[in-house]
């Protein structure tokens, strides 16, 4: 008689920890309705962005408010894309380029570093690991100004080098990959070693192929971090052609002030590639967050 409950508790949890049970209509209707209302509220700003972006300037400020664009036009988009105040597509490319280079280098660097920290025995290993992890106690603002002064000396102001190199040695990536490498059974590595594989071959052919989920997770985080970086590029890049997307869009914000038709067109353009990427890769993002945020 106790069978159903024991079976339910012993059953393995499904993906993303979905609890057993079903959606039952009368009982769950209020919850469903509440979620629908919240979803509408969450999406309202996005709708308003798109609606404003296709309105002619007069209709943006007309009262009573035009809830649905009466005379939709792409004029704002045309003006933003051909703006003499900066090339938004260029900024998008800059951001994409910088984020891609950063991500590849960061993941490779962290994998090379996490491997000996997780898998080799050598004097100073613990000290080095705790030293790296300890750097997470230093907030970015502390290194911002000295690093800026270094960029002047390196002649890296207005150079993509400034957007790539200073952030590469991030402790979180080493931490994340080391944790994952530790979870890989040692037997696999020993077997490869017995077959005469060098440590680099073990890394390439045993450790990395088994770590693809965590490498992808780190890659997604690194790409998002670089793409969304706002403070640092605001100060280190001033050349209009070299701005990244977030900073470039902000220059529009300062230039167009309350010309919201154009501003909404530029924010929509800036969001389209991110939205597409999100729809394609949200699984990695959300599962990565769920699994790396905390270890139970």
């Amino acid at each position: 008689m106790a069978a159903p409950s024991t079976r339910a508790s012993a059953a393995p949890q499904t993906r993303a920890g979905r609890p057993p049970g079903r959606f039952r209509l009368p009982r769950d209707l209020p919850r469903f309705a509440l979620l629908c209302v919240l979803a509408v509220i969450f999406l309202a700003p996005v709708y308003w962005m798109l609606a404003t972006s296709v309105k002619p300037e007069v209709d943006v400020i007309s009262t009573p408010t035009q809830w649905v664009p009466a005379r939709p036009t792409l004029e704002n988009y045309r003006e933003v894309l051909t703006s003499p105040d900066g090339n938004i597509l260029r900024w998008m490319w800059n951001s994409f380029f910088v984020a891609t280079v950063f991500t590849v280098l960061h993941v490779a660097l962290c994998a090379l570093t996490a491997y000996p920290l997780a898998r080799m025995r050598f004097p100073g290993r613990e000290a080095i690991f705790w030293f790296i992890l300890g750097s997470m106690m230093v907030p970015g603002i502390v290194t911002l100004i000295p690093t800026y002064l270094m960029m002047i000396r390196f002649d890296w102001i207005n150079s993509f080098h400034a957007l790539i190199w200073p952030g590469l040695a991030g402790a979180f990536g080493v931490f994340l990959l080391r944790q994952f490498f530790l979870s890989i059974p040692r037997e696999l590595e020993e077997a490869a070693r017995l077959d005469g594989a060098s440590s680099l071959q073990v890394l390439r052919h045993v450790i990395l192929p088994l770590s693809i989920p965590s490498l992808v997770t780190l890659g997604v985080f690194a790409f998002m971090g670089s793409w969304n970086n706002f403070i640092w590029p605001t100060f280190v890049i001033t050349d209009l052609d070299k701005l990244t997307l977030p900073v470039g869009v902000n220059t529009f914000s300062q230039r167009y002030v309350t010309d919201y038709g154009k501003l909404m067109a530029s924010t929509a353009i800036a969001s389209i590639p991110v939205l597409v990427a999100y729809l394609l890769a949200q699984r990695y993002l959300i599962e990565g967050l769920s699994t790396t945020g905390l270890k139970e």
Binding site: F42, M224, W227, M264, A270, Y278
Partner: peptide, 25 residues
């Protein structure tokens, strides 16, 4: 629902800022 609630988080801070400045004009 989960995707909808997560969606704003992918926007970059200047997009989010301009959007909310407009919402509260």
């Amino acid at each position: 629902f989960r995707s909808v609630f997560f969606l704003p988080g992918i926007l970059t801070v200047s997009v989010m800022g301009i959007l909310w400045r407009w919402m509260f004009d």
